[in-house]
Simulated scan of single mutants.
Amino acid sequence: MQLLDLTLPDPAVNLALDEALLVSAEEGTGGEVLRLWEQPTHAVVVGSGGSVVIDVNLSACAADGVPVLRRASGGGTVLLGPGCLCFSLVLSYARAPGLNEIPASNRYILARIVNALKPVVAASVEGTSDLAVTGVKFSGNAQQRKRKFFLHHGTLLCGSDLALVAKYLNPPERQPEYRRDRAHGDFVTNLPLRAEEAKQLLIAEWRPEGDYAPVPLPQAHALVAEKYSRVEWNRRR
C-alpha cells in the first residue's frame, strides 16, 4: 500500500480521482492506496442511488453556490468541506479473507479505523457503516467494487461547521435505526482533534510504504467530463 495525501481544488475532480485510483488498480497500472484529502470548499455529495430532491435543500445550496454532485459509490448524502477529512482506500480482495463481501469488508476496515482512533475516542460501528461515539455519528462510509479491487471511502468530522449540515441537507430518505429520527444537529458530532492529527493516526494504522505514483489525473479529468460534471449523472434521481 502507498500513500496519496492529495487534495484537488475542485470537488468533482476529487470524487473522480477516487474512482480513477480504483480503475488504475483494476487495470494493473496502480495498486493499493490510502488517499487522504479535505475538500477546501463546501459541496454536497449524494450516493449513487440517492435522491437529490429528497436529501438535499436545493434552494439553500443554490443561494450559497454549493455544488451538488453524485459519487459512484453507495451510501447516504454528505456535506464535504473544511473540517471534514476524507479517507479513501483501494484494497485488493486478496488482502484478507472476506473482503469480496461488503459486510465483512466494512467490518475489517472500520475495525481498523476504530483502532486508529483509540488514543482519542472509544468509537463504535453503528448501522451499516457508520462510526459513532455514544450513538452520535462522526463518520460515514461507502464502497465501489470491481472484479479484483474495491474502493472504500469515508469521512471523519474534525472541526466541521455542523450547522451547515442541517442547512444544506434535508432529513435523509433512508436512515439507520440507531438514528431514531434525530435531527442532523443531534445526530452528528466532530472528533476532538484536527484533520491533520486524524491523518497521522490513519497513516500509523495502515502503514503505507512510500508515496503513490503516478497519480492518474488524466483519467480523473476524463471521468469528470464523462460523468461527474454532467447533469444527467448528478441529477439523475
Rank of each mutant, 00 (worst) to 15 (best):
L3V: 07
T7W: 02
P9F: 02
P11D: 08
V13F: 00
N14G: 06
L15N: 11
D18P: 04
D18N: 06
L22V: 01
E26Q: 12
E27A: 14
G30Y: 09
G31Q: 02
G31W: 06
V33A: 11
L34N: 05
R35C: 11
L36Y: 02
T41Y: 13
V45L: 02
V46G: 01
S48C: 14
G49D: 08
G50D: 09
G50P: 02
V53L: 12
D55H: 01
D55K: 06
V56M: 05
A62F: 07
G65I: 11
L69E: 04
A72G: 10
G74L: 11
G76M: 11
V78Q: 05
L80S: 04
L85I: 00
L85F: 01
C86K: 13
L89E: 10
L89K: 10
L91N: 02
A94L: 14
R95T: 05
P97L: 03
G98I: 08
G98Q: 05
G98V: 01
L99P: 00
L99I: 13
P103Q: 06
P103S: 02
A104W: 14
A104G: 13
N106M: 05
Y108I: 03
R112M: 00
R112V: 09
I113Y: 04
N115Q: 15
P119S: 09
E126S: 15
G127H: 14
G127I: 09
A132W: 04
T134N: 15
F138W: 08
R147N: 05
K148S: 10
F149I: 07
C158P: 05
C158Y: 14
G159W: 11
S160Q: 15
D161F: 07
L162N: 12
A163Q: 11
L169Q: 07
P171I: 10
P172I: 06
E173D: 15
E173F: 07
Q175H: 11
Q175A: 15
Q175G: 13
E177H: 12
R180W: 09
A183N: 07
H184G: 07
A195H: 09
K199Q: 03
Q200K: 14
L201H: 04
E205Q: 11
E205F: 08
W206N: 13
R207M: 09
E209D: 15
D211N: 09
A213L: 12
A213S: 14
P214V: 10
P218R: 03
P218D: 01
Q219C: 08
Q219Y: 06
A220T: 07
A220G: 05
V224I: 02
R230A: 01
R230Q: 02
N234V: 06
R235S: 12
R235T: 13
